[in-house]
């Protein structure tokens, strides 16, 4: 029963968030601010993870496809597909669910328990809209950008691994990553990312917005935000893959 309560309240919140803003210009400014807070400040961790992820995927693929019938460029090809289709959109979104989700939930939760949200409501501001909508929009803009960067860096990581360890000759790796490239894969990855961004920002916003009590409960809210947005990301990953690829 508790689950239905939360789901119902979540959709009511989303409906409130999507109400027409009182001042579009203020929302626009918030969106830019949040793009910096939520996106650019995650660039470092995204870059590091992507390079290493790409390197590991390349080395592992090389070890697992050691078969005379498989052309050696298949390693580059497999690396590219894995990174574009799955690792960049999903793994990076999960990382962001942790980093951005906890940030959103604790920021909004703190505002709730210190009555700052009440203060907004009292002024006649749509507090949910003002606080959460810019974060959702900012995430939906900036996360795809991060994922594209992650794709490049992941593939670059694979190239570096090939260069250092020599598991694949570089020319074969490059041939592989260019082999039968389909634009649709990128669209698929970006559509997933945008949906995940919405989930992460709105679910975390939900847990923050309905936090109750004090600092301890804000901590709980932010843990829940990370756990549930990760679960929903995984769940929707399956659903979207089924819809978009099959």
């Amino acid at each position: 029963m508790k689950l239905f309560y939360h789901i119902g309240r979540y959709f009511i919140l989303v409906w409130i968030i999507l109400q027409k803003p009182e001042r579009a210009s203020i929302y626009r400014r918030q969106i830019v601010l949040e793009m910096d807070n939520l996106g650019l400040q995650s660039l470092g961790i995204v870059a590091i993870i992507s390079v290493f992820m790409g390197a590991v995927v390349t080395i592992q693929t090389a070890f697992n496809t050691d078969h005379p019938l498989l052309p050696i460029y298949a390693i580059g090809f497999a690396t590219r597909q894995a990174i574009i289709l799955e690792f960049s959109p999903t793994v990076i979104s999960l990382i962001l669910a942790g980093k951005v989700g906890s940030r959103i939930a604790s920021e909004i939760g703190t505002m709730r328990v210190t009555e700052q949200i009440d203060a907004l409501e009292i002024m006649g501001v749509n507090a949910a809209g003002y606080l959460i909508l810019p974060k959702i929009i900012a995430s939906m803009i900036i996360n795809p950008a991060l994922v594209v960067i992650s794709m490049f860096l992941g593939i670059f990581g694979g190239w570096v691994a090939s260069a250092i360890t020599g598991v694949v000759p570089l020319s074969n790796y490059v041939y592989g990553i260019l082999f039968e490239f389909s634009q649709y894969d990128i669209y698929y990855a970006l559509i997933k990312t945008v949906v995940f961004a919405f989930i992460i920002a709105s679910v975390s916003g939900y847990f923050g917005f309905y936090a109750k009590g004090g600092a301890l409960q804000v901590g709980h809210a932010s843990t829940k935000a990370v756990v549930f947005s990760s679960i929903y990301v995984i769940l929707f990953n399956l659903v979207l893959t089924q819809i978009l690829l099959v």
């Binding site: 700052q116 009440d118 009292i122 002024m123």
Partner: peptide, 18 residues
Amino acid sequence: RAIRKELGMLFQGAALFD
């Protein structure tokens, strides 16, 4: 919300935006 634009409130804990 329309009425609230006509009111000001001071909270016990000030509730300034951090």
